[in-house]
Design a protein around this nucleic acid. Structure first.
Lengths: 171, 171
DNA sequence: TATTGTTATACTCTATAACTATA
DNA sequence: TATAGTTATAGAGTATAACAATA
């Protein structure tokens, strides 16, 4: 650890970061706890739960069918969680399991045409709200926000991973 | 609603927004599902659950003791949830309930000195990680990010609230 | 023997309903 | 009778452990 002085420049940085924390909290609440997903699904006219919709979106964003394990990895959840959600999605004919010809143990998950349509309408609804909410933004601000948001997520992810390397978890 | 043409400018906006969605998802995952809170609590040497720590942080960010209902409102949860967490926090001597002299029904929640110290160390830890993760950022980028992040959360919140007004919920 | 996925079970977080005490 | 908080219960979301099938 370095021996830091509370220089002017340094304090300015700290203040910026202090204001960042409540804003991240606020953003998290808007995205998670405002009923945004539920309202979008209602508007789309589909009644499934959030993890189910997340799977549909994950598949829709991919350019190819995904394995159970790949979906779990992209969603940052464990395998059994995806399996259980998939049982319901398959029953509802929104996605289907196809045995991977390369490996009989694995299953490739693909959207049905209805599943793809649902995911499309859902994404379009959310995107429409974002578009409206940001209607007054300058193109520069929109572009900056996208860039900085991605960079922030990347840098924070990398830094947390680096912490893991410094202090490996107890076995 | 306006009669929109898919002009060049318009399409540019849509593309920006399409990239926004995965980035928001990624950010949400880093903040919620990367063990960030757990690791910070471990480093601070406190073993409480996430909602309990959120209450401590909420109180620490406030400039005065808060009622149960006020904490619930700021955390966007219902009252009973705060009550149950408070039982544990009070048992652990991290916060205490004081009857509101203005209203015998209400309780004012205040941090104990240990609770305040824990919240401080926790916030400092997280802020330290943010500082390190953003060490390579220009002051302009840091400032822009904070501004745009707050604006985005505000604008999205406002727009979703406006949707409610247009289409009031069924009773 | 290692890997992919499934089944069964348990835990965390949060909500709803019914209740108590005070206003 | 309305409001602040509590108790009891239920539900959504996710994890862990034990297992089956294939590699």
């Amino acid at each position: 650890m370095d021996d830091r002085r509370p220089a002017d420049d340094d304090r300015g940085v700290e203040l910026d970061l202090l204001t960042l924390l409540p804003r991240l909290t606020q953003l998290g609440q808007v995205l998670h706890r405002s009923g945004l997903m539920e309202r979008a699904m209602e508007r789309v006219g589909i009644a499934i739960d959030r993890p189910g919709m997340s799977i549909l979106v994950t598949l829709r964003m991919s350019d190819r069918p995904l394995r159970i394990g790949e979906i779990a990895e992209r969603m940052q959840v464990v395998g059994p969680h995806v399996t259980r959600q998939m049982n319901e999605l398959e029953r509802r004919d929104l996605a289907r399991r196809v045995v991977d010809p390369q490996d009989q143990r694995a299953r490739l998950i693909e959207l049905t045409s209805e599943g793809a349509a649902v995911a499309d309408r859902y994404l379009r609804t959310i995107l429409g709200w974002f578009t409206d909410a940001l209607a007054a933004w300058s193109p520069q601000d929109r572009q900056s926000f996208g860039r900085l948001l991605g960079r922030f997520a990347d840098d924070l992810t990398a830094h947390l991973a680096a912490l893991d390397d410094d202090l490996p978890p107890a076995p």
